[in-house]
Design a protein around this nucleic acid. Structure first.
Length: 288
DNA sequence: CACCATGTTCCTTG
DNA sequence: CCAAGGAACATGGT
């Protein structure tokens, strides 16, 4: 679920459900996800506070709140890690097994659930300061991107995952963007030509924008019983797997490349899988 | 038992 | 301080 497009689709669904709501009580079931905040701190700050807005930055969810006591605005940062989910449900529904934090609104409540607890819901918003440009905004420019890439010898695929360089690209869309740009994932970042940088810059934007569009259009599943319409929860049961279908190379090793029919390959880079077409994304020939 | 998983952070080494 | 490379985090699926 959680790369930039999935988080974007999530906040679009969630914003109208949380905006204007007052938090009556807070329960922290797993301290690790609120670090470095403490349960005491978070409970204190959130009780009585009102959620004024919910936005996205990279893969982070940015909750804007207003304190009950001081009237001051403050920020809470959410991240889904690998397996996190955030949704609003009736208070009467049973909590998921891996509920990490619950915010009570009254009849409804906001639930952050995370099987592996790699995600976050914290008052520490420092992580935002390090993030690179937002890829779908004007601050992401091919010239800057190319200049940045000049200082790294690591493979371009690995650098696409570096949130300091560009915010929001993860393991799936890194492979997808490189495929679209016809660039080898193994090419050293500082060796990209200006033309390749331009193609990659464009491909990143296209891949992410397309995923948001499709994520907003495909039949989504709402809530645990798939009926009460309260939250985004992946795709509806019984519908085709558009999520996998729309990906051209990710998790498709051995299948024919959609462009040239050569078998897609899987390699490991920085301990993560990379998928690519060895023919379409061949490294440039060395002259000698 | 083995390996794999949409992510980030921390540690060591150079 | 910078960059590379790897392990660690925690749980579950195959």
């Amino acid at each position: 679920m959680p790369e930039l497009p999935e988080v974007e689709v999530l906040i679009r669904h969630l914003r109208p459900l949380v905006q204007g709501r007052t938090i009556r009580a807070v329960t922290v079931y797993r301290d690790r996800v609120i670090a470095p905040s403490t349960a005491r701190q978070i409970t204190q700050a959130l009780r009585g506070a009102r959620i004024t807005d919910l936005t996205r930055r990279g893969k982070y969810l940015v909750f804007q709140l207003r304190s009950a006591r001081s009237g001051r605005p403050f920020t809470m940062l959410g991240h889904l890690g690998m397996t996190g989910r955030m949704f609003v449900a009736r208070r009467t529904r049973p909590l998921p097994k891996h509920a990490a934090v619950v915010l009570e609104f009254g009849r409804d409540r906001f639930i952050y659930e995370d099987q592996r607890y790699f995600g976050r819901l914290t008052l520490d918003a420092a992580a935002l300061e390090r993030l690179g440009p937002e890829p779908l905004s004007d601050e992401f420019r091919a010239e800057d991107f190319g200049r940045l890439l000049k200082s790294f010898s690591r493979a371009i695929k690995v650098k696409l995952l570096d949130q300091d360089l560009i915010a929001g690209v993860g393991n799936i869309y890194a492979s997808e963007a490189l495929f679209r740009a016809r660039i080898s994932p193994r090419l050293a970042a500082h060796r990209l030509t200006l033309g390749q940088v331009r193609r990659l810059h464009r491909a990143i934007r296209e891949v992410l924008a397309l995923a948001i569009r499709q994520g907003s259009t495909i039949p989504l599943s709402f809530a645990g019983d798939h009926r009460d319409g309260l939250f985004y929860f992946g795709q509806a049961p019984g519908t085709p797997d558009f999520y996998a279908e729309r990906l051209r190379v990710y998790d498709r090793q051995g299948q024919p490349c959609p462009r040239c029919a050569a078998p897609i390959r899987r390699i490991v880079q920085a301990a993560r899988s990379t998928f690519f077409c060895p023919a379409c994304q061949a490294p440039a020939k060395r002259l000698r």
